[in-house]
Amino acid sequence: MRTSTSVRGRRSHQKSRRGCQQCKLRKVKCGEEKPSCTNCTRHGVACSFAPSVQTEGSSSHHDRSPSCNQATTPQDNSRTMLSGSPGSDGQSQAAAAPDLAIGDLELLHHFTTSTAYTFSRHPVLQSFWRVEVPQIGFTAPYTLRAILALSALHLANLRPDKSQCYIAQANIHHDAALKLATPEMANITPENSAPLFLFSALSTFIWCAKPLKLGNFLLWENHEIAGWLVLIRGTGTILDFADETLKNGPLASMFSARARNRMCEPVPPHQILENLRHLVMQDVPEAHMAQIYSSVIDEMNRPFIMCLDRNLRLETSDVFIWLLRVPHEFLLLLKDYQPLAMVIVGYFCVLLHQLEWMWCMKGWSTHLLSQIYNQLSPAYRAWIRWPIEQIGFLPPR
């Protein structure tokens, strides 16, 4: 047993507030050596002190993200030459030219050649993500930043040895995108409706692609509704405001492809959901609360019929549309960990499981259902037996 005399305090050191951005991200002390600090040189990453990483008139780390594939040193930076031949004119032009953001170009290339194919198995939608989405991104920096952030997270998934570097890139881009997009959300116009809609969709994938952690229930965390969910529910406002503009504008191919795959005819109630409704109604004395729970169950009926009865492949829109349609009061019940609300989300996990062919959705259904199981009392755990069996989750003994 340790005594108080054996505990040694931390060695004090002078704190630095002028360290490079890379050391701040890694939360290590920076030596502040110029033009590249010792830590960055040793790890082979681009230091924000280096001329190739800083931007003209700004030292903000949001302006440039270093490549995770290059070991940049002060002698080997990525400057562009405006003239192919040496000479005084060419040298002066090169000195005045801005640097190429190699890391960002790498991310954009990866998005168009790889990531764009992972959002859908529909050829038209794959083409949409590969061609139209970057084009829309060039008109709105927040959408372009979200594209780069998602591409970085995809690379983090594909290259685990460099995952921390790519995750850092993703965080830089998405944080900058949120700052740019938030004011736009308060002023939706026909001109910005398409990039804002895409930004909301991309942000959904970004949040789902981030590493799983205990306490994160996807839709809520620490008695708060998830920030990404608040954001994408704003997508409903965008659709209400600019429905025809979106469907006839740059997003036309996306909406038309989805419309061809959607079931338009009325569908009968799914028996599994009717069994769930029967359980919930017996446990809710208030008519108002019963109406909330019943409407939430109704919104799951169509995708349940599609995947379980008709064996149709679900797209992300078929699943996440549920999150746009559930009443806000239901989300308030979730953030308070109300058992009936969590039981219903347990059934939603079956739909999430249908999306696990996507790299950013892998593991979410089991992660979410296991945490719900741990929160519920033994009596309510019996209510989610069917989702547990469908997903293949093995509860702890």
Rank of each mutant, 00 (worst) to 15 (best):
S4F: 12
Q14T: 10
Q21Y: 09
Q22P: 09
K24G: 04
K27S: 12
V28D: 07
K29M: 07
K34F: 08
P35N: 02
C37S: 07
N39K: 14
C40E: 09
V53E: 14
S58R: 13
H61C: 08
D63E: 03
R64T: 07
R64L: 09
S67F: 00
P74S: 06
M81I: 05
M81S: 11
S85T: 15
P86M: 08
D89V: 15
Q91D: 12
Q91I: 13
Q91Y: 11
S92Q: 13
Q93A: 12
A96L: 06
A96S: 08
L100R: 13
I102A: 13
D104H: 12
T115H: 09
Y117F: 15
R121L: 04
P123C: 05
L125F: 01
F128I: 06
W129Y: 08
R130P: 00
E132T: 14
I136G: 07
I136P: 09
G137I: 04
F138S: 02
Y142Q: 02
Y142L: 00
T143R: 10
L144Q: 03
I147R: 11
S151D: 03
S151G: 03
L153F: 05
H154C: 04
A156D: 01
N157W: 06
L158R: 02
I167F: 12
N171H: 06
A177Y: 06
L178K: 10
T182P: 11
E191A: 15
S193N: 06
A194L: 01
L196H: 01
F197R: 00
S200W: 03
A201S: 08
S203D: 11
K210I: 01
K213L: 04
W220F: 14
W220V: 04
E224F: 14
I225W: 08
A226L: 15
W228H: 15
T235W: 06
I238S: 06
I238M: 10
L239I: 14
F241H: 13
D243V: 01
T245Q: 07
K247W: 11
P250E: 11
F255E: 08
S256P: 09
A259G: 03
A259W: 01
R260P: 01
R262S: 09
C264W: 12
P266A: 09
P269L: 14
P269N: 15
P269Y: 06
P269Q: 05
H270G: 05
Q271T: 05
L276A: 00
R277T: 01
H278W: 02
L279T: 04
V280F: 02
M281K: 14
A290F: 02
I292P: 00
I292V: 08
E299C: 05
E299L: 10
I305C: 07
C307G: 01
L308I: 01
L312Q: 11
E315N: 14
E315A: 09
T316K: 03
V319S: 11
F320L: 11
L323E: 07
L324W: 00
E329K: 10
L334D: 03
Q338I: 07
V345I: 15
Y347K: 07
L351V: 09
L355P: 08
W364D: 00
L368A: 02
Q371M: 07
Y373I: 01
L376C: 04
S377Q: 08
W383I: 03
W383F: 13
I384H: 03
W386P: 00
E389T: 12
I391D: 03
P396L: 12
